[in-house]
C-alpha cells in the first residue's frame, strides 16, 4: 500500500530531528520519568524472556496441587487447576503488553490518517467525519467496547480490535487539529501556490509535524489500554483459557479471595505496576516533547 511508503519517511524525519541528547538530559532530570522508564524496560525484558524466567510450563495442570500457597515450589502459589501462578504472570504480561502496542499502533495509524485527511480536504467530508467521531465519543466507550468484543467473539485479538476502533476518534481529533494549524503556516501555503498535490503536502509537510503530538498521546494510551484490555478479560470478553492473562486471572481469583488472596492479588499488582510505569513514562515524555502542555 502506498500509505506505508509514505509513512516511513516522515517518521525517519521526525526521529532524525529529535535531539536525543536533550531528551535524555530532560528524562534524567525527572526521577519519576526515569523510574517509570526503568520499570517499563524491566517488564518488557521479563515478559519477552518469560520462558527463561518461568519455573513451570504456564499451561501444565496438576489437579493434585490446586490452590497451593506461595512457597519455594510455586513462588506465587497455584491456581484452581494447579498451574503455577508465577509462570502464568510472566507469560500473561506478553498478552497485556502486546495488546497495548497493537491498539496504539492501529488506532494511532488509522486515526492520524483520517484526521489529516479530514483537515486537509475540509468541507463536507470534514464535517461528516468529525460529527461521526463526536457521536462515537459520546457513546459510553466501555459499553461500546464490550458490545463490539461480544460481537466479534471473545478473544484477546478481538478485544484489542474493539479497543482500537473506539480509540480512533481521539487520534482523529488530535491529528485534524494539528493539520488545520499547519495548513495555515507559510510553508504550506507556499507549497500550495506551487500547485503541490495534496498527497505531497500530506507527506512532506503535514505528517512530519503532527507525529510528535500523536506519539505523545500514544505513549499515554499504552497504560490505559493495558488496563482496558485487562478489564475486558476480567468480564470474560478478552483472553481465552488456557492462555494466561492478568485480568482473567484476577477474575477467576476473586472466587478464592478469602482463602487464597494471592491468586488475584499478584496478577492485579502486575497490572498496576505495568500501567503505572507506562503512564509515568508517557507523562514525562509529554512534558518534554510538548512543553505547551507541561503545566497540565
Amino acid at each position: 500500500m502506498s500509505d506505508a511508503t509514505v509513512s516511513v519517511n516522515p517518521i525517519k524525519r521526525v526521529l532524525s530531528r529529535v535531539d536525543w541528547g536533550y531528551l535524555w538530559y530532560q528524562i534524567k532530570k525527572s526521577p519519576l520519568t526515569l523510574g517509570g522508564g526503568a520499570v517499563v524496560l524491566i517488564v518488557l525484558f521479563l515478559v519477552i524472556f518469560a520462558p527463561v524466567f518461568a519455573t513451570h510450563d504456564p499451561n501444565a495442570i496438576d489437579l493434585r496441587a490446586r490452590l497451593a500457597a506461595p512457597g519455594w515450589e510455586h513462588f506465587f502459589g497455584t491456581d484452581e487447576v494447579g498451574r503455577d501462578l508465577y509462570s502464568r504472570i510472566l507469560y500473561g504480561g506478553r498478552q497485556s503488553v502486546a495488546v497495548g502496542f497493537f491498539v496504539v499502533l492501529v488506532a494511532g495509524f488509522i486515526g492520524t490518517f483520517v484526521g489529516a485527511f479530514a483537515g486537509l480536504i475540509g468541507g463536507r467530508v470534514d464535517v461528516v467525519i468529525m460529527r461521526l467521531m463526536d457521536v462515537v465519543l459520546s457513546v459510553p466507550s466501555l459499553v461500546l467496547i464490550m458490545a463490539l468484543a461480544a460481537a466479534l467473539g471473545p478473544s484477546l485479538i478481538n478485544a484489542a480490535i474493539a479497543i482500537a476502533l473506539v480509540r480512533i476518534p481521539i487520534y482523529v481529533r488530535i491529528s485534524r487539529g494539528q493539520t488545520l494549524l499547519i495548513r495555515e503556516m507559510s510553508f504550506v501555503t507556499a507549497a500550495e501556490t506551487f500547485k503541490a498535490s495534496k498527497l505531497h503536502i500530506l507527506r512532506w509537510h503535514i505528517l512530519p509535524n503532527i507525529l510528535s503530538p500523536v506519539m505523545v498521546q500514544a505513549t499515554l494510551d499504552l497504560g490505559s489500554t493495558i488496563l482496558l484490555a485487562s478489564a475486558l478479560s476480567f468480564i470474560g470478553l478478552g483472553a481465552q483459557q488456557p492462555t494466561a492473562e492478568w485480568g482473567a486471572m484476577v477474575a477467576t481469583g476473586r472466587n478464592y479471595i478469602l482463602d487464597q488472596w494471592w491468586y488475584s492479588a499478584f496478577p492485579g499488582f502486575a497490572i498496576l505496576i505495568t500501567a503505572t510505569a507506562f503512564n509515568l513514562l508517557g507523562d514525562g515524555i509529554r512534558d518534554i516533547l510538548d512543553p505547551k502542555q507541561k503545566a497540565r
Binding site: 495442570i61 487447576v81 471473545p154 470474560g236 481465552q240 483459557q241 488456557p242 477467576t252
Partner: peptide, 23 residues
Amino acid sequence: EPIAIATQAYLSQLGLNVKLEKL
C-alpha cells in the same frame, strides 16, 4: 472452566488440538 482446561490437557496427550471458547 476447570473441566474444560483439564479436558484440553487430557486430549493433548492424544495429540488432539482443542481450542477453548468461553462464551
